[in-house]
Every structure is written in structure tokens, then in C-alpha cells.
Amino acid sequence: MRSKYSVKQLSIFLENRKGRLLEVTKVLSDAGINIRALAMAESAEFGILRLVVNNPEKAKTALSSAGFTVKEQDVFAVEVEDAPGSFYKVVKILAEADINIDYTYAFVGGTQKAVLIFKVPEEMLDNALKALSTGGITLVEPLFFYD
């Protein structure tokens, strides 16, 4: 299931200094990359920008050649009703399957749907996909994000 549902996420380490986010986004813009989902984690001195984009390979190449160090990781996405309790339902299944969630972020899709992105430890990824699938959750194929 992993090969079918894992989505490439790019992480970029950024120092907290003025203009740094501007530089990343300019590189992506110039390369014609469409950001499909993003999350930013930060501490007082630095942050990590996490992106799911329409063309991960191209984005990675553009960022690398601009001097950013980019780490690619597998995450997965699920589609849920844009309604109360949807997120709870997904998290509950993962919790019952004893799967740790490293982090998660979400965006509202075009229709009545919301998409949740999850990062779980590498060795738990397969179990997570299985548990969700069994639990009747719709897994999103990467093609949804990519061109």
C-alpha cells in the first residue's frame, strides 16, 4: 500500500532571519512550482518548512541548486468530510492501531471535502495505511497532488 499511497513531502530547514521565507518561495515561484499544501514549524531561532508540491523532483532540484538543503520524506493523505468529527475519526483509528503521529496538517479541498496529511514514523507507515483502509477512510493517491 505504501507505494500506492505515499506522498513526497519536502522539508527545508530555515534560520529565523529576515527574508529567508521570501527566498524559498521565490525559488519555487520562479521554477513554476505549485504548492499544494504546506506547514511551518518553528522555534525561536529556526523553522522547518514542509511542502507538498505538484512536482517534487523539480522543486527539490530548484531548491538544491539555490543552496537550500532539502529532505524528502514519505507522508500520506486522507480525504474526509469537511464536517465536525472527521479529524477525530482518523486520529482515533491511528491511536487504536498504536501509531504515533509525528505531525499532521490539513487543507480544505474544492468541494465538501478536506484533506489531512500525516507524517508517522517510517516503520509504522504500512500499518497506518492498513488500519485506515480497514477503517473505511479514503486514502488519497499522490496523483491528486502531482501534475
Binding site: 530547514f13 514549524a41 518553528e42 522555534s43 523553522g47 538543503t69 529532505k71 520524506q73 505531525y103
Partner: peptide
């Protein structure tokens, strides 16, 4: 890159 991927 291996370090920062694990998060803040």
C-alpha cells in the same frame, strides 16, 4: 538533512 527532518 537527516536531523532536521525529524522536526523541531
Amino acid at each position: 538533512e537527516t536531523t532536521f527532518a525529524d522536526g523541531i
